[in-house]
């Protein structure tokens, strides 16, 4: 078993009229499995510009077929390069990187709060959820076009709450308000969140006030993705309550909300 280093694009398609794409890649060789929360760092050029790889969350991994999937939004040169890759082309990919969501065996009820393109690592978590665990899922989107029905989990043990910023579908407003309105009387074993930092901060503070374990999945500008360049620093609480820096690529991307400064 080895780390991932190259694959072949099996599918790369745009989701309706959005600028969001879903890509399916078959890895070469006998590779390590990936777990919910982990990411890949993908080369997005055949030359030197863009220079750095792009870190992208893993949506799914099929160990029998060695196939992983990612979802990405075209935002700049790197993701544009990705969107132009065709079936059969090679992909230079490092993975699986980072730690994973901690889901303890004794957990029975969890909540998941995601915003925009932060929902993808959470979907990986939800799809691998044991049947006995119930999940209340809160996903916020900009508008109804961006609700990715194609990949939202549909399982009996998952209850989905959706908000849109422009009030075009579901709850109109912030996903954090929808989360608070529907969870004030509930006791979760853990809450998992990924998305814009202000959203994660509200979720984390609400959880800590009720003494609920909360796990946040962070994003930061990154170069190597493997803990060497020390570029993707995030503020963490050290043992003696001093401020230190952890690194999203290696110590994360998933952090216990109590240990990280949002």
């Amino acid at each position: 078993m080895t780390k991932w280093n190259s694959g072949i694009v099996l599918e790369n398609k745009r989701i309706r009229s959005t600028d969001i794409y879903i890509m399916k890649v078959r890895l070469k060789g006998d590779v390590d499995p990936s777990y919910p929360g982990q990411f890949v760092n993908i080369r997005c050029s055949k030359g030197t510009d863009p220079l750095l790889r792009r870190p992208i969350s893993i949506l799914r991994f099929d160990p029998a077929e060695n196939i992983f999937e990612i979802v990405y939004e075209v935002r700049g040169k790197g993701t544009q390069y990705l969107s132009l890759l065709k079936q059969g082309e090679d992909l230079d990919v490092l993975g699986p990187l980072g730690n994973r969501f901690c889901l303890k065996e004794e957990y029975e009820r969890i909540a998941v709060v995601g915003g925009g393109i932060g929902i993808f690592p959470l979907i990986h978590l939800l799809e691998s959820l044991p049947e006995k665990v119930f999940a209340d899922v809160f996903f916020g989107f900009r508008d109804s076009d961006r609700i990715l029905w194609e990949i939202l989990p549909k399982k009996d043990n998952i209850k989905l709450y959706i908000s849109t910023d422009d009030k075009s579908f579901g709850y109109g407003g912030f996903i954090t308000d929808l989360f608070k309105e529907n969870t004030s009387d509930k006791k979760y074993d853990a809450v998992y969140t990924c998305g814009p930092k202000p959203m994660m901060k509200i979720v984390a503070e609400a959880c800590m006030a009720k003494d609920i374990e909360c796990f946040v999945s962070l994003e930061e500008r990154m170069a190597c993705g493997i803990g060497a360049c020390l570029g993707c620093a995030c503020r963490v609480q050290t043992e003696n309550d001093k401020i230190g820096y952890g690194h999203v690529c290696k110590d994360g991307p998933v952090f216990n909300a109590r240990k990280v400064v949002l």
Partner: peptide
């Protein structure tokens, strides 16, 4: 402990 983030940014063929 190093500098506060952000610590890196990409530039044309560099960083």
């Amino acid at each position: 402990i190093g500098n506060p983030p952000p610590r890196t940014v990409e530039t044309p063929s560099g960083m």
